[in-house]
Design a protein around this nucleic acid. Structure first.
Lengths: 340, 340
DNA sequence: GAAATTTATCGAAACGTTTCGATTTGTTTT
DNA sequence: AAAACAAATCGAAACGTTTCGATAAATTTC
């Protein structure tokens, strides 16, 4: 384990001089710098980053915590955070909360190993967040709302998204619109449902029989849809809490001999990559993931710089119209009926 | 910035005692432990992980380097490495090489910030790998071949994959099979092509007019396919170096009014998530990504433990038959013809 | 060419931990 | 109740850097 001390000795200079030379300070003369660099190369010296961080009291890295480090959902978001982080001269590392309290996420957060964090992960407790956020380590939490010093929030306007999706279906003439939501601990899912209900209410529709929960997985969407279809009355449209569940829905519908969109119209949420390749291509609500990513990263840096920033940001979403919706086959003969 | 020193003072014990208490050593009596823990809580003490790593001379984390930290390709692989890493009591962090020599990957590798690394990223130079790999930081490189001390290689058997895919097409009667490969710096792509050529050769087919390169993106696949289709003679099947290019191919074919698989059969490579949802679902070659991930992680730990391990591993691939292939419309009337 | 100034190098302290060996305290044995 | 031992606590060194203030060497100024 060759240290800077060895390099200094080998080059015949003081340890401090070696340090200056290696870090490119102009306090050192060109020829000794050369000497030191040469020695370092000969000994295959590698600096110890921790020792440096310890002395410097900053790590120049920010941490991105995701629930599973994979999943189709994250790509764009990661890209956004990465670009901003890099252009600020910082490093970005990602980790997951798999492993609970022993997880990498906990370790890095608790042990001051980073200068800031962006968290998109419902598994990280509010307690940990509040405990870890501090001057010198601001935290941005996505898709949920956590209050605390040095904690900021960024989310898509899920209420709006839910509202617009439902509105869209209603404008096509649908009145019997089912909702298959995500897990109840997902604030995003709750908000989407809120928007959904709001849209229904505006038209005086009170819908209680077609509201189910899934778990944001394809599997969950599949099962919930089956449950839905086994009821005697069937909706003419289904709004899913996310795209993966909608994929499961496609499968269940096919098994029941129903086709999309002729028999049932479908709207998803997220606009994951697969969405446009499904058949039919899925109409869905796009979250501005890239923008959320850049926004989050910017907030971290602003907070780090001591700038005053708002605590909470909501980004607009956008409905992506594809081919999974059409007016219902028979205009339903109840309620207010069609009037488009 | 409250340190262990403050905690010790506040609890009225020596610094060393506080350290023992906090790290749960049994050298300390229950009541002083309680005292220290209490003090730590009151002061909101957070340990400094670097100082610890510095002293302990190990970080207990391993690094996963990916070319872009996103992309549909990685999910399964990450899951594999994560599971193994976690069950060994280590942490896994991921980063990308975006940023070149200033990238996070470089920093972490060069500055001894991890105890091991898994690299799936053509941008990391062999030089850096050899320089960084050492006792105390073995490196597993995926999908390419790098020789060096403490460096191991894991890859799918791309030659076999290319061979089997081509063979499969030939067994259906295809003789005019095009190849649209990845970038020339991808060893994987080269091997796939090798397998492709081998299969053709076995049947005495010498094919030069239908070999193109793309860049592993949808866009690249689209353009290369267009170039291919503008030639006067058209193949009856196309084998793509990866699935994303095949997706681009679908699009180009549609524009030319050709349908899959009636007019042209298609085989991809990788089996990314979208593959099965395309229409028609894409026949492709599945890489055992999860297994590659676990294998890589295991190797890291074995090498860390000083166990002797082979330098290089190849994992078997598997052809996934879906609906994008069928026998050519007219059996080609040249060469050896069909004889299945 | 001596004094003043700049430039280059050095020594030592500090960062926040862990851990070894020494000391003190408490308990058991005779 | 003194001696022997175990348990608990302490002090200090070490990990590998950076950086401050001090010294030595080189350069300029009068």
């Amino acid at each position: 384990m060759v240290t800077i001390k060895d390099v200094a000795k080998h080059a015949g200079v003081a340890l401090s001089t070696a340090s200056y030379a290696l870090s490119g300070s102009d306090k050192v003369s060109p020829k000794t710098r050369e000497l030191v660099l040469q020695a370092a190369k000969e000994l295959n010296y590698q600096k110890n980053g921790f020792a440096m961080d310890l002395k410097r009291k900053s790590t120049k890295t920010i941490l991105l915590i995701l629930s599973d480090l994979s999943g189709p959902y994250y790509s764009e978001l990661i890209r956004g955070t990465q670009e901003v982080t890099l252009s600020n001269g910082f490093d970005l590392i990602a980790c997951s909360s798999v492993g609970g309290a022993d997880s990498t996420a906990y370790k890095f957060l608790q042990e001051r190993r980073v200068d800031g964090a962006i968290v998109l992960d419902p598994n990280i407790s509010e307690h940990l967040l509040r405990e870890s956020a501090r001057e010198g380590c601001p935290i941005v939490v996505m898709d949920r709302y956590v209050e605390g010093d040095f904690i900021m929030n960024v989310a898509a306007d899920n209420v709006q998204g839910g509202y617009e999706a439902t509105r869209y279906l209603m404008e096509q003439g649908h009145r019997d619109i089912a909702w298959i939501g995500g897990p109840s601990n997902s604030l995003g899912s709750q908000h989407r449902k809120e928007g959904y209900l709001k849209a229904l209410q505006e038209e005086g529709i009170v819908n209680t029989k077609w509201m189910l929960v899934g778990n944001f997985t394809e599997e969950g969407g599949y099962h919930s849809t089956k449950v839905l279809l086994m009821q005697e009355e069937r909706p003419t449209a289904i709004f899913y809490g996310n795209d993966e569940m909608a994929i499961g829905g496609y499968k269940a519908l096919r098994e029941f001999g129903l086709s999309v969109p002729e028999d049932v119209s479908i709207v998803g949420f997220d606009d994951i990559q697969v969405a446009e390749y499904l058949s039919p291509p899925l109409t869905t609500v796009r979250q501005p993931k890239y923008e959320m990513g850049t926004m989050a990263a910017h907030l971290v840096f602003q907070a780090m710089g001591g700038e005053y920033v708002n605590k909470s940001y909501k980004l607009k979403i956008e409905l992506i119209e594809r081919l999974s919706c059409q007016p219902p086959r028979l205009a339903p003969n109840r309620g207010k009926g069609m009037e488009t």
